[in-house]
Design a protein around this nucleic acid. Structure first.
Length: 434
RNA sequence: GUGGCCGUAGCUCAGCUGGUAGAGCAUCGGAUUGUGGCUCCGAUGGUCGCGGGUUCAAUCCCCGUCGGUCACCCCA
């Protein structure tokens, strides 16, 4: 390629393609949900020491093993672009002893994440996530409340076709037991498994369960369910999560094969998948769960229960019918190109500054181009009103005010302009949407 | 990372069995010498993704490469 281009899998968002407003509305809706549920924003660097993700997300996960952007800084330190948000947030909470100051921490974040995967629809190398985290409260009520937050946020975006999938992978004891049971089940079928799953059998047998390779379907028949391996405590926790969700009226389906690809999860795991088909294979809108061991793994002396989720903005935008924003009241000031250029443009700038100081969105056309051209541009930019300033107007301290919707135009004195515009704005608001 | 499909004007695309390119929209100008939208007329705009090969001749066939897309993998 002769011309410079953006890095593979990383996108520009340009004004005018209609997407910027949708991003802003989505983020606003998320912040509003977080406000209602009592979460506050945390911002962390998008770069961390590699070790954080190795210890936090897990050495053997695909994310850490083959998808992380890592590099050395000038001091030879090993850094990584964050592949997800939770490890950084926990690091920040620990580093600043946040839980020494409050019993429960509720954070949300919005920002870019980086994974060097092959790009596809709804999957990019730089992608944006929103997410929430709760630290310090191990109650199953937190699990249900946060899942409710996610579902409620999605409904606010106008999403109706989605499904909450829920599972419990228990704590360390449960997982050790279940791992043994799984290995015992799959070992006799080892040769029938896909090559990937044969490797998983040794490293992370749980992942065989959600393999989509048809070769793994047969051996999977009759495999033990993790739900049967839960300890009494883990089972009680899971049952209470379900009871709380039912009480909240959040529909969900329990799927014992749901396993997440990050090592830090314990007990509750969930994801919300899009069922509209708008996303193809990348149908996971949001994923999360409980990670009661993560603080300890990152060096916390005391264990801290934690729960959270992350959701992909690009994917939400692909399936959310976020409506267009209504047209704002907007004034364009235009120079009649017949008078003296400097005097007229000075007048245009002065008038525009006056309007802007009054809080009115004001566009100027300083090209000193033909009236036709300027009017056309004002129309393209969806100006509600165009104010024309030329030799005549300057001489008489007036402006020509044209209301674009009706084509009506009249001369208005500078003194009366404020009131006249306010009147037009009221009329436009009355005519326009809601 | 593996496989399939696709890369032609700013955008969406057409281009026959190989003979060096077109439309619509957009942009600019004019019809309307200080007035938008609709209509009409005109203009600008392309190393046919890039590199190599076959051929008298390649947008077209072959190979490579870059990018996109779909599936797998994985995941948000």
């Amino acid at each position: 390629m002769a011309t410079l281009q953006a890095v593979t899998g990383m996108n520009d968002l340009l004004p005018g393609d209609g997407q910027g407003a949708r991003w802003q509305r989505l983020e606003a809706a998320f912040r509003e949900s977080c406000r209602r549920y009592g979460f506050a924003e945390v911002r962390t660097p998008l770069c961390e020491y590699v070790e954080l993700f190795q210890r936090g997300v897990g050495e053997t996960t695909d994310i850490v093993e083959k998808e992380m952007y890592t590099f050395e800084d000038r001091g030879g330190r090993r850094l990584a672009l964050r592949p997800e948000g939770t490890a950084s947030a926990v690091r920040a909470a620990l580093e600043h002893s946040v839980l020494a100051r409050e019993p429960v921490t509720r954070w949300f974040y919005v920002g870019p994440m980086y994974r060097a995967e092959r790009p596809a629809k709804g999957r990019y190398r730089e992608f944006f996530q929103v997410g929430v985290e709760v630290y310090g409260d191990g109650s199953p009520a937190v699990d249900a409340e946060v899942i409710d937050l996610a579902a409620s946020f999605f409904r606010d975006l106008g999403l109706t076709q989605f499904k909450v999938r829920l599972n419990s992978i228990g704590g360390a004891e449960t997982r050790a037991r279940y791992r043994d049971a799984l290995v015992a089940h799959f070992a006799p079928h080892r040769d029938a498994l896909s090559p990937e799953s044969q490797a998983r059998l040794d490293r992370n047998p749980l992942r065989i369960l959600d393999s989509k390779d048809p070769r793994d379907h047969g051996p999977r028949e009759g495999a033990p369910s993790i739900l049967d391996a839960l300890t009494d405590d883990d089972r009680a926790h899971f049952e209470r999560v379900q009871a709380f969700l039912t009480a909240l009226g959040v529909p969900f389906v329990v799927d014992p094969t749901l396993v997440r690809g990050l090592d830090y999860y314990t007990r509750t795991v969930f994801e919300i998948v899009d069922t509209s088909g708008a996303l193809g294979a990348q149908d996971t809108l949001c994923g999360g769960g409980r990670y009661d061991q993560l603080f300890t793994e990152l060096g916390s002396a005391a264990p801290v229960p934690a729960f959270g989720f992350g959701a992909g903005i690009e994917r939400l935008l692909l399936s959310a019918p976020i409506p267009e924003t209504p047209k704002p009241f907007r004034v364009a000031v235009v120079a009649a190109a017949k008078a003296d250029e400097s005097a007229t443009l000075a007048g245009v700038l002065g008038l525009a500054r006056e309007l802007r100081a009054a809080g009115i969105e004001t566009l100027v056309d300083t090209r000193f181009a033909s009236m036709k051209s300027q009017m056309r541009r004002a129309n393209d930019l969806a100006a509600t009103v165009v104010l024309v300033l030329g030799g005549n107007e300057l001489a008489s301290s007036t402006v020509s005010m044209k209301i674009m919707a009706t084509g009506e135009q009249r001369s208005v004195t500078r003194a009366a302009l404020g009131d006249e515009l306010a009147q037009v704005q009221r009329a436009a608001a009355a005519n326009g949407a809601p």
